[in-house]
Amino acid sequence: MFEARLTEGAILKKVLDSVKDLVTDANFEADPTEGFKLQAMDSSHVSLVSLKLHADGFAHYRCDRPLTMGMNLANMAKMLKCASNEDAITMKADDAGDVVAFMFESPGQEKISDFELKLMDIDSEHLGIPDTEYAVTIRMPSAEFKRICSDLATIGDTVAISVSKEGVKFSTTGDIGDANVTLRQNSEDDKEKMISIELGEPVNLTFALRYLNSFTKATPLSDQVVIRLSPQLPIVVQYVVVDVGYISYYLAPKIED
């Protein structure tokens, strides 16, 4: 059987809000040692989301054997919306069951809610993501990244991200004109405002803003976002929830035909 309790249930609500617009149906994997995981592609197979909540990130975690739980994410989101932000959330499933149960407990235990979501059989392709050294690693405030993506999407459909010693430049072009936003590394002690750029070699890649904007739905999970780039490789946009887990998005670059 599988049973996992998150005292801060709001994290699970935010995690779901971060993936439900990108992915319709997905298999969650509960693993005895690793924790609660999901890997899924969007319907166009252009992007991939990989999320993991570590087993020891839960207040209580029990998983007797690996368990795959196929869920419709919109329906899961409907149920989690019924939990208050202050509630603890417990997920439970039997090894051979066809439902997953969500229990929401208010902080004073004066309200307990039980919801059961029907599981589905989902054929999903699992991709192996190699451990790669990336040419560039950028750390910046997640709200700043969200702002840049949404601003540029009002001008154009794609963003060219070029990283050099000068900093990182986000550029777009549209019918009404052009836009460029350049960020430079700073020496902020305040971690929330820190911008750091680790540069192995200069990189210039173009991505669809629609997907990057969808990734920024994870902004409430973390004050900082980590962006990794290498020539000719998908961008990685990662939000880390300290001591709990992470959500990483991968997006294939646009290429010149």
Partner: peptide, 14 residues
């Protein structure tokens, strides 16, 4: 013109 590649063209199926 620019084209969009799929993510599965970068990462192998396991």
């Amino acid at each position: 013109a620019t084209g969009q590649r799929t993510i599965s063209s970068f990462f192998a199926s396991t």
